[in-house]
Design a protein around this nucleic acid. Structure first.
Length: 356
DNA sequence: TACACGTGGTG
DNA sequence: TCACCAAGTGT
């Protein structure tokens, strides 16, 4: 038996013996598969699982998801990160209902045209739900194939991606594409792990280049990441009576679509009185000059390090007569405030510090 | 093509 | 501690 056939056979055997029992494994329903795949993009099963359960319960069908508001969908997504996924999830549901009468298209080529569905997710849905023989290439597949077949190209590079995809196309068992695709991913997730792969207990060890040459630590080859950008956020929790000012984030930046208090961002840490003095809007509010900020929170994103403080500010002068609130700011009661989708760090602060 | 996009777990 | 990672996509 040649090396490729052996690989395919062993991965499928390994999967039948070791696969986890996960809720989306007991169905081929494309809505369920699609939802699980979107949630699991760049996300561990343990982290995504509770979100999947809540989404299925709250939005049992693509119609339920399509008719919900974007705010509701974002709220359900709160804390999972990569919020564009949630907005595209919602757009995709609406598209499936409006353009496909509520039935997901059943081919890779049509699936990939939908928002939030790229090459990986299109292949996953096409193979798992519709038995189309297209290989998935995710982080697990990259790792497993680069190690076993000794691929030294950078996996982000054009040649690396082509080489890995071409290899996956040769390996996939077209009699059972759903099983093969899930098998190779599960094998990467549980056995051929990034750190400390279980080579001593691996049926592929005898054909694995990385095992033979002790290259597990070096494969797959990845390019180094850029250093993280540092940003300083000061949030002003503006309170007018029993209502709080919030605004929605727009533009091309983190947390797009989520809500937050009035924000002043600086390139370095400044004192609160400095910020107030310079800010035309806050100056008009005539705040207590001795307001003290919360201790700083450090929040790490993949490419940014945020230093965040919160300042609680009660409005002394009513807006309307002498001044107006900036257009994007609106006031929310306690319960309305809590129902807004927020970044996790903002959510936590508000939950802990906002009483009635 | 390279980079931006979240959060939490891991060694 | 902190760099790296986790079922990628959009621009």
């Amino acid at each position: 038996m040649n090396k490729k056939s052996f690989f395919t056979q062993q991965v499928l055997i390994w999967y039948s013996d070791h696969q986890r029992n996960l809720p989306w494994r007991s169905t081929r329903d494309p809505y369920t598969i699609w939802l699980s795949e979107i949630i699991l993009q760049q996300t561990r099963v343990a982290q995504g699982l509770p979100y999947f359960m809540r989404f299925i319960k709250k939005f049992p069908s693509v119609y339920d998801l399509a008719k919900a508001s974007e705010k509701k969908v974002l709220k359900e997504w709160e804390g999972l990160g990569y919020y564009t996924r949630a907005r595209n999830l919602h757009r995709c549901a609406k598209r499936v209902v409006s353009k496909y009468n509520g039935r997901f298209p059943d081919t890779y080529n049509e699936l990939i045209t939908l928002p939030g569905i790229g090459s990986y997710t299109a292949a996953a849905i096409a193979s798992i739900s519709f038995n189309e023989c297209v290989p998935v290439v995710d982080g697990n597949v990259n790792r497993v194939l680069c190690r076993v077949f000794g691929i030294h190209d950078e996996i982000q590079s054009s040649t690396g991606k082509k080489r890995i995809y071409a290899l996956a196309e040769k390996l996939i068992d077209c009699r059972q594409p759903a099983a093969f695709n899930q098998a190779i991913m599960e094998f990467g997730a549980l056995h051929c792990t990034p750190k400390a792969p279980r080579c001593s207990d691996c049926t592929l060890a005898k054909i694995c280049v990385a095992n033979k040459e002790q290259l597990q630590e070096w494969l797959p080859v990845k390019k180094k990441k850029a250093p993280v950008r540092k940003r300083f956020f000061t949030y002003f929790m503006i309170k007018d009576g029993r209502r709080w000012a919030m605004q929605q984030r727009k533009g091309n930046d983190i947390w797009k679509g989520l809500y937050e208090p009035y924000l002043i961002e600086t390139k370095q840490q400044k004192t609160v009185s400095e910020l107030i003095k310079k800010d035309t809007f806050l100056k008009v509010l005539n705040p207590d000059p001795n307001v003290k900020p919360s201790p700083v929170y450090h929040h790490l994103l993949s490419h940014q390090k945020l230093t965040i403080r919160f300042v609680e500010l009660a409005i002394k002068r009513k807006p309307g007569k002498d001044f107006k609130m900036p257009g994007i700011i609106k006031f929310y009661s306690k319960s309305a405030l809590e129902s807004l989708p927020k970044a996790i760090i903002v959510h936590r602060f508000i939950k802990e510090h906002v009483a009635t």
